[in-house]
Nucleic acid binder design. Structure first.
Lengths: 337, 337
DNA sequence: TGTTTTTGCTAAATCGATTTAATATACTTG
DNA sequence: CAAGTATATTAAATCGATTTAGCAAAAACA
């Protein structure tokens, strides 16, 4: 009864060959000199029965899947989920589907995910890479699969990437704190070798040194919020002279707000706060939190454009692009006494 | 140089047939009486060259992809992204991959997405359905693809679903407000026929009627936060006697907090607040917001278990399960004067 | 009229697996 | 020793598309 419709069944039904149908379907009809009459016949019939070619079979034959693999750090982080949504939308318009997943910044999980995507024959990759996966990414490039890195690059990987200007953003934000009278500023970050985190730290340190301030750098091995809160509480107890905190990521800042609340420290009277990366919460929090907002739309737009152009022109066409975008500094209540 | 390794190339290399290799790979070696010696030979060689069968080719032949399609309302909403992460994890352990996407509660987009997933031959579906897609879901079931509905069911669709007890949760929360002295309570919801929203409203109305209170139901066609803020501001201006608000979703509540802030109304002194669905922001907001928390882990666990069991036993095996989970009422500062 | 070109279409190979049905050999059994 | 059975392996069909190479028939040309 419910016999599958395939290009074969259609060919049989219409009494023509599958080749002809395939040509018509792929817009090669005129190139291959299929007559108008036959084209119409095929199109009409396909329309009538609502036939859609099997992507599976097509991919097997062509080696292309029209799928882009998007690997981010955490899809439930608003920064990444926003970018994911925008990439998805743009890709969709160009006939590509996105499949995404989260690495949780875990090296082994990332390697596994790349393996899964290779297995699924995705055509290209957009990756927010943890450190330690250089070899795997290089391997993808070597196999002719375009890769665009996001949020951070990998030192020994030669491919396109899209970043924000972490160094100057952190430098400016730190200077702003200093100008507002804070002198003992803590920089709370994750213990990671990722370049974007290093750059943020370097920007911070430069501003501190130029102004002869005291810096307190605290690296946290982030596993969950509760643990981070404890670390921050402990830091503030040990070092009561800290009068401001620069949080290097949004989730560290959320933990920080919890910590400050539990210590009953007032922002900004007792402790000034700025955060790298914006978040709805920061706008609504009392007091509202000053932050460095990343241009998610531009990041998504650049990443997908780079990837699509490589997919069209090939991995080796032209030089690799290194896109560095500016951030915007959103001054709120938390950063001035 | 880089000749692809396939089951064929291996067969040629080892001088045996592809059938044998396939049997070994699929654990049918003993059933098919392949000798230990040959099994070892095949396994060793596969190990050595790191061969992995093409999922594409396998899927084409077997009709199974080992992919589950997860369709949620908005992957950047923390409620859905949390569930997605948990489902992904459980599925992964059972050898299934998840591909997900957002409907934005849009009927047409949902239909399109179902089409895409059908095209990708996903083995089963977990769907947070907008109203109006009954036909498409029924069609999937009819084709033998298991579907589990989440967060809400569809009236004329007979399949498994996992929900929370919307009616009683809303009833209890409203009673709590009333017990705390609020008498003019607004219920702010989206204009939708979705059963979970209707149930929340019915629970609210029951409590109101039982206590002889005044109710103000406001349905908003939600497009973006700014517009919602305007609607809420306008409602509060028109109806100053409102002394408490029950928000039917987390994002409406966020808009509500913005609205209350802009009107300079104090929570809970001027307006009490409770919200259906919890959110990190609600815990950290000043004052903290009372909410009805959904058991995301249990929801994810139930949904994936139901689907996996259908995938194993078939769509028609046994009765459809209707799982209704309890919520927890998190009392914070916003709900008592 | 005979040869070449053009037009319109198709047979068959291919992508990389699974699976059915068959075959060849070794081993029992009466 | 012939016939039946168990063992170990494989040839070939199949999933549903794309693509190369080629074949008739019609048209153009000499």
């Amino acid at each position: 009864m419910n016999k599958r419709i395939s290009i074969n069944s259609i060919a049989k039904e219409l009494g023509i060959s599958t080749t002809t149908i395939s040509f018509v379907l792929n817009g090669k009809a005129s190139e291959k000199r299929i007559s108008e009459k036959l084209i119409k016949k095929v199109m009409d019939y396909i329309e009538e029965i609502g036939y859609k070619p099997s992507t599976l079979a097509r991919s097997l034959r062509t080696g292309k899947t029209n799928i882009i693999g998007l690997i981010v750090e955490d899809i439930s982080d608003p920064f990444f989920s926003t970018i994911a949504r925008q990439i998805e939308e743009r890709a969709y318009k160009s006939g590509y589907k996105i499949i995404y997943c989260s690495t949780e910044n875990n090296r082994d999980k990332t390697k596994e995910l790349i393996e899964v995507y290779k297995d699924r024959h995705v055509d290209g990759y957009i990756v927010v890479a943890p450190d330690g996966v250089e070899k795997e990414i290089n391997d993808l490039c070597a196999r002719g699969k375009p890769v665009v890195l996001l949020d951070r690059y990998l030192p020994n990987v030669n491919t396109d990437y899209v970043l924000v200007d972490n160094f100057n953003s952190a430098y400016n934000a730190t200077n702003y704190l200093i100008k507002n009278g804070f002198r003992n500023i803590a920089f709370i970050t994750i213990n990671s070798l990722q370049v974007q985190m290093i750059d943020r730290l370097l920007g911070f340190e430069k501003a501190i040194k130029e102004n002869g301030c005291t810096q307190h750098v605290k690296e946290i091995a982030y596993h969950d919020s509760e643990e981070a809160v404890k670390h921050i509480v402990s830091l503030l107890n040990r070092t009561p002279e800290i009068d401001a905190i620069f949080f290097a990521t949004n989730y560290l800042c959320v933990s920080g707000l919890r910590a400050l609340k539990s210590l009953n420290l007032k922002i900004p009277a007792d402790v000034g706060v700025v955060c790298f990366d914006d978040y709805e919460l920061f706008e609504l929090y009392t007091p509202s939190i000053t932050s460095i907002a990343q241009p998610t739309e531009a990041i998504a737009e650049n990443a997908i454009s780079l990837l699509l152009s490589r997919l069209k022109k090939g991995v080796t066409a032209g030089k690799f692009q290194k896109v560095i975008l500016p951030t915007s500094f959103i001054i709120r209540e938390s950063s001035a006494k």
